[in-house]
Design a binder for these strands. Structure first.
Lengths: 205, 205
DNA sequence: CATGTAATTAACTAAATTGTTAAACAAAAA
DNA sequence: TTTTTGTTTAACAATTTAGTTAATTACATG
C-alpha cells in the first residue's frame, strides 16, 4: 500500500477529467485524452484498462465533489437565515468555478443507467444527510414562525435550480446579453445576490 | 413543389428525434435510428445524406419548438400578474411534456459551436422579442409601483431555471424521493405552484 | 404495355477507434 | 553486474460506424 500515484497516471486522469467533462463520455476519444496528457495512448490502457474504467474513476470523483459542494455550512452556529445566505453563496461560487461540472453529471446520469447507480451510491447518502440537517433546522424555525411551512427538498431544489441553470445556459446567456467578459462577470455577481434574495423570499411566512 | 414528405422520410425523422434527444449527437448511431425507423440504413443516407445533416434538421426543429414554447401568452389583455402566472404554468407544462428536450439542447449547445450558431440564428431573435415585450410590460408596472425594479432577463431566467431544472434532474429526484409514479406526479403539480409563487414573489416591491 | 424515374436493398469501402502485444527501456534489488 | 520488475513504445488487430454503389424493385406517365 501507500503506492503514490505515478506522474503519468495523474497526467492521464487530469486530461481525462478535462475532456470527459467538456465533451461527455460518448464524444470523448481516448486518443484525444492521450494526446492532451502527452503520452502514448497505450499507456492509458496500461493504467486504466478500458475507456469505461477511466471514465468511472473520473465520474465517481466528480459526483462526490458535486455532492460535497452542497451545504458544508450547516454546522455553524449562526442564525438560520444567515446560514442560508452563506450556503447559497458558497454553492453559487462552487458552480461558477466548475461551470461544466453540473451539466456533465446531469447529462451522464440521464443517458446511462449505470451512472445513475453511481450517483445513487455516492451522492444520495450525502444528500439525504444534508436534507435531514436542513429539515431539522427548518422545523425549528417553522415552529417559531420565522419561516413558512415549506418542504426541505423544495427549498433546496429552488437554490440548486437557480444556481446551476445560469451556468448550464451560459452560451445562451452570453449570446443574449452580448456584453464584455467583465460586464458578464458583474451580471453573475448580481445573479448571486438575486438567488440569495429569492431563496430567502421563498421562506417568508 | 408541394412534394409531400414520404412516409419513410417521416419515419426516419421521427426515429432520429427520439434517439438524438435521448442520447445526444455523439452517442447516437445512425444504424440505431434506421433500426428504430424500420428501414434499411442506406435509406437514411438517401434522404439526408449525412448524420450531421439529419441531426441539424432535428436540432433546428427542436430549437424552434423550445424558443416558441416561451411566452406565447404575452399578448392577452389581462393583468400583468395573471399573465405571469399563466406563462409560468404553460412553460412548466411544456417542459413536463418534453422533459428530455431542454437538457438535450443545452448539452448540444455547450458541446458544439455550430449548434450554438443555430441557436443564435433561430432562437435568439424569438427570445429577444419576448424579452422586449415583457420588458415593456414590466416597465409599466414598475412605474405604477406594483412590482419592483428588476431586469426582465433576470425575471425570465428565474422562471426558466426553476421550471427546467426539476426535469433535468429527474433521475436524481426520483432516486431521492423514492415514491410511486403517482406521488411523483403530485410532487410535480406542487412544484408548478411553487414556481408560480416564487416567480411572483420575485416581483414584489 | 413500355419506359423512365424514384425508392429500396444488400454488399461493400474507408476511416476511426478501442484495445492488445511483443519488444525495448529504465530503475531498483539481489 | 545481473536479474527482476515495472514502464513505455510502436506496430498491429478487431470492431464499429458513416457513407457509397450498383443492382433490383415499385411506381407513375406516355
Amino acid at each position: 500500500m501507500g503506492e503514490k500515484d505515478t506522474g503519468t497516471e495523474q497526467d492521464i486522469l487530469g486530461a481525462a477529467e478535462e475532456v470527459f467533462i467538456k465533451k461527455g463520455y460518448a464524444a470523448t476519444k481516448t486518443t484525444e485524452i492521450a494526446k492532451l496528457a502527452g503520452i502514448n495512448h497505450a499507456m492509458l490502457h496500461y493504467y486504466f484498462r478500458t475507456k469505461e474504467n477511466l471514465f468511472n474513476v473520473v465520474f465517481q470523483k466528480k459526483v462526490k465533489l458535486m455532492a460535497d459542494s452542497f451545504f458544508l455550512v450547516a454546522q455553524e452556529k449562526k442564525p438560520f437565515l444567515e446560514i442560508v445566505q452563506m450556503t447559497v453563496e458558497r454553492h453559487f461560487d462552487f458552480i461558477r468555478g466548475n461551470s461544466y461540472l453540473a451539466i456533465f453529471i446531469i447529462n451522464e446520469i440521464n443517458s446511462n443507467e449505470k451512472n445513475s447507480q453511481v450517483w445513487r451510491n455516492i451522492a444520495l447518502p450525502i444528500f439525504k444527510n444534508v436534507i435531514k440537517t436542513i429539515d431539522m433546522m427548518m422545523k425549528v424555525e417553522i415552529s417559531k414562525g420565522t419561516i413558512r411551512n415549506i418542504d426541505a427538498i423544495d427549498f433546496i431544489l429552488n437554490i440548486i435550480s437557480l444556481n446551476i441553470f445560469v451556468f448550464a445556459a451560459q452560451p445562451i446567456l452570453k449570446g443574449l446579453k452580448n456584453v464584455s467578459e467583465e460586464e458578464y462577470e458583474k451580471f453573475l455577481d448580481n445573479r448571486k445576490k438575486e438567488n440569495v434574495r429569492l431563496a430567502l423570499l421563498a421562506l417568508q411566512p
